[in-house]
Simulated scan of single mutants.
Amino acid sequence: MRQPDELILEMQNGNEKAFARIYTLYSEALYGIVYSVVRDSDLAEETLQDVFIKIWNNSKSYDINKGRFFTWALNIARNTSIDATRSKAYKNSKKNLSTTNFVDIISSTDNLNKKTNSIGIAKFVERLKPVCIKIIDLLYFKGYTQVDAAKELEMPLGTIKTRNRNCIKELQMQVLG
């Protein structure tokens, strides 16, 4: 999808119709990101609303010349989702999971292809180096922090940060063709 620069500029100038159109264009993909982190449809919908409130309130901080709007919005969605999972209410709701739920969660966390297909980037992610696939899966689809990903992959934090940046650049190059 080509980035709708004019629509983004209109939204940044306070045009609510442009914002509604942006919501229509990006909500499904961002919901996929949110849901992959929170794993609860009600919480995902609520978090998605928070994401779009942040997009609206912070739209002027986005610079078309510094990166893709989707990447900017994806980071807002990811961070908002992680914040939602750190809330006391979320933790309390997960304390009493049945073993069946637990098995479902475990099996779904390893299905990167299903998650990336839901936002249309599976074919691009599959072309990345294995280390990039692991890093993107942990950071963007499983909601790990960079510190947690460094521990999981047994790599220094600085290495994770550098590789994440390089992997995202590589993914952007593939998407942009």
Rank of each mutant, 00 (worst) to 15 (best):
N113S: 15
E170G: 00
L112G: 04
S27R: 06
F141N: 13
N57W: 06
R21F: 08
Y23C: 09
A29P: 08
I119H: 02
K66P: 02
L128M: 10
F70K: 10
Q3C: 07
N164A: 13
S41R: 12
A149T: 12
K115T: 12
Y144L: 09
K17P: 04
K129N: 14
N15L: 05
Y35M: 06
L7P: 06
L43K: 12
S108P: 09
M173C: 11
F70Y: 10
D50T: 08
Y140P: 06
L97A: 09
K54T: 10
L112W: 02
E45K: 07
D42Y: 12
M1G: 13
S36M: 03
V125P: 04
A122G: 08
E170A: 15
N65T: 12
L9D: 01
I82N: 04
L171D: 04
I119Y: 08
Y23T: 01
P130Q: 10
S36P: 08
L112F: 06
S59P: 05
T145P: 00
D40L: 06
Y62C: 05
G158L: 10
T159S: 15
T100N: 13
D104H: 13
L97S: 13
G143H: 02
K151N: 14
R163Y: 15
R78I: 12
P156R: 01
A89P: 07
Y26E: 05
L7D: 03
I135L: 11
T99N: 13
A18N: 01
I135R: 04
S107M: 15
